[in-house]
Design a protein around this nucleic acid. Structure first.
Length: 620
DNA sequence: CTTAGGG
DNA sequence: CCCTAAG
């Protein structure tokens, strides 16, 4: 048998696969009512808490903010839009002819209404599916248990990476294995020539899932119960509130094609509603971080969700995890999903394992703990690491630098296997905190600087004093700035065998000018002042940095004054500091009674007179 | 914490 | 640039 891997299918958020049966049942109610009742919105934000569980349960994972609705239904042809028909795969298996599942691709409008997808849109999605080499099997077996498998048939590595999806059945680092698998995997069913192939019906036998997925994993009731979903409950206005548990169960079965033993009415309702929207916005919308805190406490909704999620067994949890991962990744924090326990994704999820009392909460919590961040990982030796960490803790704490109290707990393996990096105090979440291990400066700086700095044109003094703008973690972080952390970080071998980080950020001319200006204004030595006033925007320059730079400038200035050749060579090579600036430096140095290192004797001696250089007299 | 100086 | 010793 072919080896197949379940994989989320990524569909633009505006799109939905909606079973016609549900979408446009012959009921009197408008076709949109169903979804409106579910508070479906194109952004998915209103689909809070419950959507997650629904999504998870359906096991059709996709990128947050995508909706993939999969519910059984039959086409009663209410959609007149002919183009949609193209998307319908109406050749249901012979045996299932009486009750085929027909999906339509629809677009979700901002107001939550559904609009039949146009040809272009269909193709778009189709291409999407195809590009990702995914195919989705919808198995409709005799028991009416729906089995949706999304399989990935190529380039697992890329996909996994891009989706933050964890390699489920394999070892994370085993790329080769993946490749091998990929080659073994099924040829995509998708064929550009026919979008309908995207959705395929097949017998249970074709389901690549482990044998007997239904029987073994579904509650007995599902098997023994009436073999055909009862859609009656789904017709017309959905008014779940008025339904009894019993009815809810019916509806549930109609919606998901299987039974549930859950007794929780509210839960059932949510599940049913959400099952229709099947959004994976879990983390994206619900896990928003506010004020550096994850609203877990006191938020019934969230905690409840957690519970729900926790209820699901392995596969589901894995997906949940991946969800989070990708969500996080959307904010652009690279990470290795390390859902260690991630099993394979399965379409048939065990909803039935849900228990209203929320027993496994800790498990969920534990799961959420892992939040890999590949960056800023210390590769220091244990010794140094410890040293540094302790240092950081103590100084940061006391200084009230205000950065989230999270510390790199460390470690990476060169083989790309990243491990836990940061643990945040709150909610056991690891917040993608981009604070650098920069000594004495863990806060916002990182952000603010990126925006300014490099943008400056060399030699141009136009220093956009962007105030300490606290560019919050929310925005940005995409292209531009990364460098700060990535590049410039050179590891220098230490005597003890450890490696220490060396952040090198070349001083731009404008910075130098600012520095000179600052010195002239506040005087050399008052680095903290200068830093605060003149370098407010250059948060990455510490007062020490300024001091060092000034020292270097002095050296350069005094050195450059005499030999021209050397100066030139240096100019081109290292720091092309314009003569005028050096002059000023010299002038200032002299004014401040600073002796240039290399010139000590001379200055000390013949300082009675003004410095020879034609420095602008009376500057200041 | 800020400076100053050495590495 | 980092580290540390001194106010």
């Amino acid at each position: 048998m072919k080896i197949r891997r379940k994989h989320p299918i990524f569909i633009p958020k505006e799109f939905l696969f909606v079973p016609l049966k549900l979408l446009c049942s012959s009921s009197p109610s408008p076709r949109n009512s169903l979804f409106n009742s579910a508070q479906l919105s194109s952004t998915g934000t209103s689909l809070s808490v419950d959507s997650s569980s629904a999504a998870v349960t359906e096991s059709t994972r996709q990128r947050p903010k995508s909706h993939l609705v999969g519910v059984e239904g039959s086409d009663d042809g209410k959609f007149e839009d002919s183009e949609i028909e193209k998307f319908i795969y109406d050749t249901s298996p012979p045996k299932q002819a009486e009750d085929p599942v027909v999906y339509k691709l629809v677009r979700v409008e901002g107001d939550g209404s559904l609009v039949p997808a146009t040809d272009d849109e269909i193709m778009e999605v189709a291409d999407l599916l195809k590009d990702e080499s995914i195919d989705m099997d919808i198995v409709n077996d005799n028991d009416k248990n729906m089995c949706i498998t999304i399989e990935e048939s190529s380039n697992a590595t890329t996909l996994l990476e891009s989706s933050g999806f964890l390699q489920c059945e394999k070892d994370e680092t085993d790329a080769g294995n993946i490749d091998a698998m990929v080659q073994d995997s099924a040829v995509p069913l998708l064929d550009n020539s026919d979008a309908r192939d995207i959705i395929r019906y097949s017998d249970a036998g074709e389901c690549s899932n482990p044998p007997d997925p239904m029987g073994s994993e579904l509650s007995p009731a599902a098997v023994s119960g009436s073999s055909k979903p009862d859609f009656s409950k789904l017709k017309g206005e959905i008014c779940l509130d008025n339904l009894s548990i019993r009815e809810l169960h019916e509806t549930f079965r109609a919606t998901f094609g299987r039974e549930t033993t859950v007794k929780d009415k509210a839960w059932l309702k949510r599940r049913i509603l959400m099952g229709l929207t099947n959004s994976c916005d879990v983390s994206a919308t619900n896990f928003t971080i506010k004020d550096n805190k994850v609203p877990t406490t006191g938020n019934e909704g969230n905690s409840k969700k957690e519970c729900s999620l926790a209820k699901f067994s392995g596969p589901v949890r894995a997906m949940d995890e991946s969800n989070k991962s990708s969500a996080v990744e959307n904010i652009n924090y690279e990470e290795d999903s390390q859902v260690v326990s991630a099993k394979r994704l399965r379409s048939h999820v065990l909803v039935d394992s849900y228990k209203p009392d929320g027993t496994n909460q800790e498990e969920a919590t534990a799961k959420r703990m892992r939040k890999p961040t590949r960056r800023y990982i210390e590769e220091l030796s244990d010794v140094e690491s410890r040293e540094r960490t302790s240092r950081l803790t103590s100084s940061y704490r006391g200084s009230g630098q205000g950065s989230p109290q999270s510390y790199a707990t460390k470690s990476v393996r060169s083989d790309s296997r990243t491990f836990v990096t940061r643990l945040d105090s709150f909610a056991g979440f690891q917040v993608p905190c981009v604070s650098r291990l920069r000594r004495s400066r863990p806060r916002k700086d990182v952000m603010s600087l990126m925006l300014v700095e490099e943008s400056e044109i060399y030699g141009h003094t136009a220093v956009t004093n962007n105030t300490e703008g606290d560019q919050n973690t929310t925005q940005r972080d995409s292209g531009s700035s990364e460098d700060v952390s990535n590049d410039n970080v050179v590891t220098v071998p230490t005597a003890k065998g450890g490696m220490r980080r060396k952040h090198h950020r070349a001083w731009t001319l404008s910075e130098v000018m600012k520095l000179v200006d600052g010195v002239s204004r506040y005087g050399a030595g008052r680095w903290s002042e200068i830093k605060r006033l003149a370098f407010a925007s250059y948060s990455y320059r510490t007062s020490v940095d300024l001091k060092d730079k000034w020292r270097n400038l002095l050296k350069a200035a005094n050195f450059a004054s005499a030999p021209t050749d050397l100066m030139n060579s240096r100019k081109h090579a290292v720091t092309p500091i314009p003569a005028p600036i050096l002059s000023r430096v010299r002038e200032l140095a002299e004014r401040n009674g600073q002796a240039s290192p290399s010139n000590v004797s001379s200055s000390k001696f013949g300082l009675s007179g003004r410095t020879p250089t034609g420095s602008a007299p009376g500057y200041l």
